[in-house]
C-alpha cells in the first residue's frame, strides 16, 4: 500500500468516509497518522501538495511550523476537495459519540472546543467516546449524515476509528456567562460554511459545499453555546441535549 516513487514521494491509499483516496507525500513524518486508514481499494482520486506549494504556504502558518506539518495540513483541504464529488466533506470540529449519535463541537480555532470536550469527558466520561478531535469526515448518504474519523486529529491527537450517525451541532462561543439556545438554520449558514475544510479553488466546489450544508442544516439541529469553558458549561450542554433530544 505504500510505494516509494522517484524523488522520495510516498503514496498511500486511504479510505476516508468510505471513499478510497491516494495520498501523495514528500515527507514521511505523518505517515503513521495515515496508516490506520490504509486500504487496498482502487483510489477514486489522487491528492498531493507540491513542494513549491508547501514552500509558498509555509509563511502563512504559525511560526515554527515545518514543511511536513504544512504538507499534512494542506493534504486535508485537498482531500476534502477530492471527497466533495462523493458527497463527503471534512469539517472543522470535535466529533464525539454520546447516546449512539455523533455530536459536533465547532468554533473558530482557539475558542475552546477541546476544553469543552475535556469538560464533558471529566463529568460524563463513561457516556462518551471520541471520533476525531479536529477534522472529522461527514458522509451525506441517502440514509442520513454520518461522522467518520480522519487522520487529522488536532494538536491533542484525539481520535479513534469509530463512526456514528450525526445527532447535532453545537457552535461554541466564548462568553462571561453560560447560555445555550437552538439556532435557526439561517443564522448558522455563514459560520458553518466556514467550517468545511476545502480549498475554495473553484465555484463548483463552493456550490457542492453549499448543497451539503443545506442538507446538514435541514437534517440536524444546531445550538449555540456561549460558554466560560468551565464544568458548568459542559453540564448545561449535556442537560440541554438530554432534554431537547431525549426528553430526559
Amino acid at each position: 500500500m505504500i510505494s516509494p516513487l522517484c524523488f522520495s514521494i510516498m503514496e498511500i491509499s486511504v479510505r476516508l468516509g468510505g471513499v478510497p483516496l491516494m495520498l501523495s507525500c514528500a515527507h514521511n513524518e505523518y505517515m503513521l497518522m495515515y496508516m490506520p486508514f490504509a486500504c487496498c481499494d482502487m483510489p477514486l482520486a489522487r491528492v498531493g501538495v507540491s513542494a513549491a506549494e508547501v514552500e509558498r504556504l509555509l509563511p502563512l502558518y504559525e511560526e515554527g511550523s515545518t514543511a511536513p506539518y504544512v504538507e499534512h495540513m494542506e493534504l486535508c483541504t485537498r482531500a476534502c476537495d477530492a471527497l466533495l464529488p462523493f458527497e463527503r466533506a471534512i469539517f472543522h470540529g470535535v466529533a464525539f459519540i454520546w447516546r449512539g449519535q455523533a455530536w459536533l463541537l465547532t468554533a473558530l480555532s482557539g475558542t475552546g472546543k477541546t476544553t469543552h470536550y475535556i469538560q464533558w469527558k471529566r463529568q460524563y466520561g463513561s457516556e462518551i467516546s471520541i471520533i476525531n478531535g479536529d477534522k472529522p469526515v461527514l458522509d451525506f448518504s441517502d440514509e442520513g449524515i454520518s461522522v467518520h474519523p480522519s487522520p487529522w486529529r488536532g494538536k491533542e491527537n484525539m481520535g479513534s476509528m469509530r463512526s456514528a450517525p450525526l445527532g447535532g451541532i453545537i457552535m461554541l462561543k466564548q462568553g462571561q456567562e453560560n447560555a445555550m439556545r437552538r439556532v435557526e438554520p439561517k443564522e448558522a449558514v455563514a459560520e458553518l460554511f466556514m467550517q468545511f475544510l476545502f480549498t475554495r479553488s473553484t465555484p463548483l466546489d463552493v456550490r457542492r459545499v453549499c448543497a451539503l450544508e443545506e442538507r446538514l442544516l435541514q437534517t440536524v439541529p444546531v445550538w449555540q453555546l456561549v460558554n466560560r469553558g468551565d464544568e458548568a458549561s459542559a453540564r448545561l450542554c449535556h442537560d440541554t441535549l438530554a432534554k431537547e433530544m431525549y426528553n430526559a
Binding site: P185, K186, V189, A190, F193, R200, S201, T202, P203, D205, V206, R207, C210, E213, E214, L217, Q218
Partner: peptide
C-alpha cells in the same frame, strides 16, 4: 466572488483568486 444560497440565505464566498 461567488454568490450562492443556503437555506434561503444569500451568501458571498471568496473563491479562487479572491481568497
Amino acid at each position: 466572488i461567488v454568490r450562492t444560497e443556503v437555506c434561503g440565505e444569500t451568501m458571498l464566498v471568496a473563491c479562487g483568486s479572491a481568497r
